[in-house]
Simulated scan of single mutants.
Amino acid sequence: MSKFKHFLGIDASKEYFDAVVILDGIKEKPVHSQFVNDYKGIKSLYKWLKEQGSTFENTLVCLEHTGMYGKLIIKYLMVYNFSLWVEMSLKIIKSIGIQRGKNDKVDAERIAFYAMKNVEESITYNPPRTEIDKIKNLLSLREKLVDTKSCLLRNAKELKSFDLEVAKFSEKLQKNTIKGIDLDLKNIERQLDNIIKEDENLCRIYKIVTSVIGIGRVTTLFLICYTNEFTMYSTPRQLACYAGVVPFEHTSGKSIRAKPKVHYLANKKLKKQLHMCALSAIKHDPELKLYFNKKVEEGKSKMLVINNVRNKLVHRVCACIRENKIFEKRQVA
């Protein structure tokens, strides 16, 4: 039996957020209000809820993942001790069925109804620590700088095929920019190292994960961020599914017989990182190298075997974290 009597749905945007509360589970009489998306607005929300008899003890708050737009709401509602459920927007949409029309008020009402209907499956939101947010922001900035540098170098290289003089002029102009990007990347790496060194738990996790052959520093940081320090997934298979390294059957009756494939909602960034890790592991880990060669000789597709290696790496990382042990390299006979 759920302890919640009231269900609050919030639809957040940049400037405002709409709030709809279903009182005593009576969905026919939802109460709606709109607030400014800042500290004063959230304070007004708290007072408004109090007037409705909705408190942190009897109310489940549900909102969608909206990136930075929902950060302030989550932060202050947690200060007020509310139970928060931060859910995927696609999951909410698909659970409701066919709907006609939409606006912010209607969306907030649908979120509140979703929370009431699925209260037994609700997952209390566990916010990442400040250190994890810092790592996320630094990784995001690093990725943008790397992409910018690659774009500049690629442009100069392509120009050489058509106009050598213009290419040299372009390289000369870009030289200082690329130097500046390289300097910024070094500073980011330094800051990431400092965050890891100064935090005991992050330092422990970092040492364990990087001990797995093939897993590098950037992939380790991505894993730490996306799993909230390995607290979001209870089994290695769940994490492997999220990372897009578990293929699922796709058949129906006699006519549909597609090859097993990974889900399109998988985390593409993590999947890409794990792909590079798998290639490195096949090269440097004797056990995985032997496994790869054996399966390829048996006629298996190379991409299928590489995906299996990615899956193995995820399971190795999770096993090491679970046992709190450094990975031990196995001897191959």
Rank of each mutant, 00 (worst) to 15 (best):
A319W: 01
N137H: 03
K40Y: 11
N293T: 13
Q191Y: 03
L60C: 08
S83R: 08
A266C: 13
E57D: 14
I123L: 14
Y69T: 08
V305M: 07
N324W: 00
D184Y: 08
A240R: 01
V146H: 04
Y226T: 10
I73G: 07
H275P: 00
A333Q: 10
E15P: 00
P236V: 04
K272T: 12
K294R: 15
R310P: 00
G299Y: 11
L221S: 06
L279A: 04
S234M: 09
L239A: 06
S95Y: 04
K149S: 13
D285R: 04
T130A: 15
T55A: 02
Y291M: 13
K289S: 15
L153G: 05
R310D: 01
F248E: 10
D38R: 09
Q191D: 14
T220N: 03
I74N: 06
V146R: 08
K172A: 12
N137P: 00
R322Q: 11
F7N: 01
A240I: 06
Q238P: 03
G180W: 06
L313V: 06
T220P: 05
L279Y: 07
K300Q: 07
A333D: 11
F56N: 14
F230I: 02
I73R: 04
K179F: 03
N81H: 13
K289E: 11
F327H: 10
K179M: 06
E249L: 13
L8S: 07
D107V: 03
K168T: 12
I111N: 02
K3P: 00
Y264H: 14
W85E: 07
K160T: 14
K207F: 00
G9L: 05
V218C: 01
L274N: 04
A266T: 02
Y46Q: 15
D11R: 05
N187T: 07
D199P: 09
S2M: 05
D107T: 04
Y39K: 15
V317D: 06
E165T: 15
T66P: 04
N228M: 05
S2R: 04
D163F: 10
S161L: 12
K179S: 12
R142Y: 02
Q174W: 00
Y46M: 11
A333M: 06
A108D: 03
R330L: 06
N155K: 12
K5E: 13
K207Q: 13
V31S: 13
N37R: 08
K283N: 10
G25P: 02
I22H: 07
G244I: 01
T130L: 14
L288C: 02
Q99L: 11
G244S: 02
Y76Q: 08
S252H: 07
A167M: 08
K5D: 14
G67P: 03
S140E: 10
S13D: 12
I306C: 03
K254I: 05
H32Q: 11
I123G: 02
D11F: 03
G25S: 07
K312M: 07
R142V: 06
R322W: 08
V309F: 01
K27Q: 14
L265G: 02
S140R: 12
Q174C: 01
D199M: 08
A240V: 02
F230N: 01
N201A: 07
L265H: 09
P128I: 10
L223Y: 02
T235P: 02
K269N: 11
